[in-house]
Amino acid sequence: MNIIVCVKQVPDPEAPTAQFRIDEATKRLRPSKSVNLVANPFDMNAVEAAIQLKEAVGGKITVLSLGPESSSDVLKQAVAMGADEAVRIDSQAGESWDSFLTAHALAAAVRKVGQFDLILCGRQAADTNAGQMGVGLATALGISCVSFASRVEPRNGKIEVERIADKGREVFEVALPALLTVSNEMNHPRFPTAMKLIAAGRQQIPSWSLAEIGFDAGQLSGQWAGIEETEHFIPRPTTTCEFVEGETLEEAGEKLALRLRAEKVL
């Protein structure tokens, strides 16, 4: 099974919130210098899913990322985990890429990769939280798409996919080629071994320019209205916490029960 995985580099979503500030001039959230750029966690679930499929039925995994030079780190990580090939589609920092343009650029890159059976994406990016790109890419390529996938198994040239419903799961049989957006429930991404990570770290990740994949943003402009962000702001919790204490922690526990009773919460 030939699998393409799309990954994105994002500011570490688990960095302490204090390390994110609003830039007064641009009114945008700006991570401090100490926030590392990491692989979007959901995309790593997609990479892991691809590796498990390859381990089950064989095939080849190609990982794509649209981003500046630093995105190569994420691709190297995917290679260390077990991907066969990785290509970065070169974009510059500061360029504005909405879900529509990104989906169409990745569609062009997918066409350049050539034959594929399955495309895997994370369910959403940890920075924009948009959750549009995967479905958008499937639409751009005209292939079937299952979002929020929590399980995938190859079945007689097709795949059986379970997706997360509001209650329980829904199971589908999907003909290939298809695209899945992968949810964190599907797996725990593996850590690569030190040896493989070092080898991948020394590799050169090839990059394709937008011209090389035949992508022209100008051609698409005006075809997609999109939304325009005006500002970011940080919501602040306004609660004051009443700390319940006691001689011992057991006593504190009992006191808390009494406080909750007094407040008629119990």
């Binding site: 780190d73 190297k76 850590f191 030190a194 990570l197 070092i198 770290g201 020394r202």
Partner: peptide, 14 residues
């Protein structure tokens, strides 16, 4: 070197 940086980051993650 990049490979050492990646290994350091992975260890941090672990």
């Amino acid at each position: 070197p990049k490979e050492l940086e990646l290994l350091k980051n992975m260890t941090r993650d672990l």
